[in-house]
């Protein structure tokens, strides 16, 4: 018995266990989401629930888990650089759609920041929590920097960013089908602006053109949110 406790104490302190859990939970979630096929069966959502349950049941705190999971988290940087590939592949179509993209970027970004803060405020959210929600449509590394800059809580913003992405991935296909929009460029781009990398990951699963345009939407909104969120917040607060 005490051997098992010793072994657990050892493993729980090492990155190996938490890194392995992250990859295995994701593979299981990805496989399960593929089987179910329902929009709510999002691999990020399922993996977060699985891992969160293990951490709560074993009394492991997030910092300890992150010591292992940081190796996966780190890959967000190179993945952002890798988005240059689908962009470059679609260069010809990009040139033709520069104006629609810029207009949609501005509309989507202002709507995302404005409605998030307005709805949260109307529902009684105040203070640092309210500020933390403003940059939630931008990709994680940008949103955290903006949150800190405007006086929010970066670690709360990280969670709001992930929930936004999951919500976007879950609602995108039914919402856009209901609107009757069949232009993969418009669909992908709007999802990338609203729901960053998780929306982009979803778009790549559906259609490669949508994925490429989603990646552009995400990249451009990272830039615009960094400029707009502090401006809009100064009007609100």
């Amino acid at each position: 018995m005490s051997d098992a406790v010793d072994l657990w104490t050892y493993l729980a302190q090492e990155p190996l266990l938490w890194l392995t859990l992250t990859l295995v939970a994701y593979l299981a979630a990805d496989w399960g989401a593929g089987k179910v096929g329902h929009p709510l069966a999002n691999p990020v959502l399922i993996a977060v629930i699985l891992i969160g349950a293990v951490l709560l049941l074993t009394g492991t705190d997030y910092q300890r888990y992150f010591e292992g999971a940081q190796f996966v988290h780190f890959m967000l940087g190179p993945a952002t650089v890798a988005l240059a590939f689908p962009l470059h592949e679609n260069l010809g179509r990009l040139k033709r759609t520069a104006l629609p993209m810029l207009a949609a970027l501005f509309a989507g970004s202002v709507t995302a920041i404005g409605t998030a803060v307005a709805v949260a405020w109307a529902l009684g959210v105040r203070g640092q929590t309210l500020l933390s929600i403003a940059p939630k449509s931008a990709t994680a590394p940008v949103a955290l920097g903006v949150s800190e800059q405007i006086g929010g809580l970066p670690s709360l913003t990280a969670v709001l960013v992930i929930i936004t992405g999951i919500v976007g991935a879950v609602i995108a296909t039914p919402l856009l089908n209901a609107l009757g929009v069949r232009d993969w460029r418009a669909r992908g781009f709007a999802v990338g602006v609203a729901a960053h990398g998780i929306g982009t990951a979803h778009a790549f699963r559906i259609n490669s053109t949508a994925g490429a345009f989603s990646g552009i939407g995400m990249g451009l909104n990272a830039l615009l949110t960094a400029i707009l969120a502090p401006l809009l917040i100064s009007l609100f607060v």
């Binding site: 992250t22 990859l23 999002n42 940081q70 996966v72 993945a79 994680a140 982009t200 990951a201 979803h202």
Partner: peptide, 8 residues
Amino acid sequence: LSLLFVPA
């Protein structure tokens, strides 16, 4: 790409 958002 989805995997990379799990830790956050």
